[in-house]
Design a protein around this nucleic acid. Structure first.
Length: 237
DNA sequence: AATTGTCTCAACCGCAATCAT
DNA sequence: AATGATTGCGGTTGAGACAAT
């Protein structure tokens, strides 16, 4: 039930993620966080779009994700919330630690919906709600002072993973728009700005060599190599 | 054993919201 | 205020797994 991996015309991979890609993404995000999903693939050495990386991380790679085996309590919670707020999967997922909106959505469509055909939701669709009815949206600002309420970001990474506007500007100034940013090349290049680039971080996980660029030295993750290994090994156990 | 139909779920797509400039 | 970039969300797709014939 996986989609075969292929490349689109822009050279970006699509379809199923390979174990090697997973390892690179885990290694990078665990160490540096997701400071910018658009740029992250270049730094992590992935031929994927940022959107794909984000989805993969949030739905399958981040720590503490529960798979399958829904409890009766979880079933009831989902059904209750569907009835009360409609198909607002992200809000429902926030009520079920370890569950992702995508997984809950699939679970609802393939299991619970059949069991609940007789139930009518009180709210049909979140997009029909007026702004006053909606819960406050999380602040997605990635400035250091802001804290995303994203179920992953807030629970997984401390605020020092965020990146401020000046840093972001520096990055856009340094990285050419059309730079394919080969990691090997990047490693061999002289840093453009010593205050910005550090030595690429290189890890060797399960015999697969991963070259990772450091986003900004002020934002180096406090995650230790032991923690990184712990998470990676937990996922690939 | 082969074929067909159904189920499952990872991944994609488009759009809206939010934020920075 | 306008515009562009980025992120988040929900709907949909499609290919492998499984069951039925």
């Amino acid at each position: 039930m996986v989609k075969t991996t292929y490349s689109n015309k822009s050279g970006l991979k699509k379809g199923t993620w390979t174990p090697e890609e997973d390892k690179k993404l885990i290694a990078y995000v665990t160490r540096y966080g997701h400071w910018n999903w658009k740029l992250l693939p270049k730094f992590a050495g992935l031929e994927r779009c940022g959107k794909s990386c984000r989805l993969r991380w949030l739905n399958y790679l981040r720590p503490n994700i529960k798979r399958g085996n829904y409890t009766t309590e979880e079933d009831e919670t989902i059904i209750h919330l569907i009835q009360s707020i409609g198909n607002r999967w992200s809000i429902i997922a926030a009520k079920l630690p370890g569950r992702t909106d995508n997984e809950i959505k699939n679970y609802w469509h393939t299991n619970l919906k059949k069991r609940c055909q007789h139930l009518k939701p009180k709210v049909s669709n979140s997009k029909n709600q007026s702004p006053t009815e909606q819960e406050p949206k999380p602040n997605n600002n990635i400035s250091p002072s802001s804290q995303s309420t994203d179920s992953c970001a807030s629970s997984t990474f401390p605020s020092q993973f965020s990146i401020n506007t000046d840093t972001r500007k520096k990055m856009f100034d340094i990285i050419p728009e059309d730079d394919d940013f080969s990691l090997v090349d990047a490693y061999q290049l002289e840093p453009v700005n010593q205050n910005f680039w550090l030595e690429p971080y290189m890890v060797d996980i399960w015999g697969i060599h991963c070259d990772i660029l450091v986003p900004e030295h002020d934002y180096i993750s406090p995650v230790s190599d032991i923690e990184l290994w712990s998470h990676c090994n937990e996922y690939f156990a």
